[in-house]
Amino acid sequence: MIFKTFIKRLFPRSFDNEIYNLRPKDLIIRKSSNHGGFKFGLSLLIIIFLFAIFGPIILDVSPYEQDLTKRLLPPVWKEGGSWEYIFGTDGNGRDYFARILYGTRISLTIGFGAACVGMIIGVSLGVCAGYFGGWVDQVVSYLLTCQLALPGLLLAMTIVFLIGPSITVVIFVIGATHWAFFLVVSRSATQKIKSLDYVTAASAIGASKFQIIIRDIIPNTFSQIIVIFTLEVGIAILNEASLSFLGVGIQPPTPSWGLLIAEGKEAIFFQPWLIILPGIALFTLVVSINMMGDGLRDITDPNSKVSEE
């Protein structure tokens, strides 16, 4: 397929040799080029990314400019629509296509940002707990239990309400309530890796504990962490949409998809596209991320076999 040829061009070494002779990186590339779900998810995600980054630059549309005489225009495929406003306009006469386009940036920024925050917190705690064990492990387990017991969305709402909503606050709040997965996975991976001979060898050659964690342990947990990461991005995006929908996330006029749904809620009978279009956008983004994440999980599974071709 097109994808395959494209990848073969980019990474020729991955397809040259016999399997046993491939570097680990090439092995992964070979496996991923055979995984349908991964390819689909990744392609879709790349398209969305390009949209988000270049769309606003190339297309000269504004999500903020209001024209009160052109309110609630239907999309181009409905009666009364026009090509000037492909997705119609919202209640303030703003170009809905532009709003959804710019909203992509918000969702991606918050999704990846929050997942990063969660990853940093969770992996640090998890690796320390797994490596040092003892009381460190006890303390971290206690923290984990607390985190799991707290109702995430409620807590996020409260904190945002107290501090005041902004993109940065939302990123940190969502990240700070979603690090449990990272912790559990990195902790068990660390415990497994810690018992392997090459870690013992590293301390025999004089590497400090810090060096061992950074150079030996964490890099070998990447494959598992990256899978959790992609799944958490999807979760974070949906979380942000929920918060904005409830009014404690992104504030108007910034076009977060959740906010668009909240604003269009009243008009559900007569202008349903106000809700359907951002809903489709959310769905597409999260599905692509999830498929990519599922694919990654299959690819990095040490028991999965590479097929030759």
């Binding site: 903020y64 400019e65 209001q66 009160l68 209640g91 303030n92 108007p252 006029p253 604003e263």
Partner: peptide, 10 residues
């Protein structure tokens, strides 16, 4: 009147 508020903000 969120719409009016946003219009004024604009």
């Amino acid at each position: 009147d969120k719409e009016a508020a946003q219009a004024m903000a604009e």
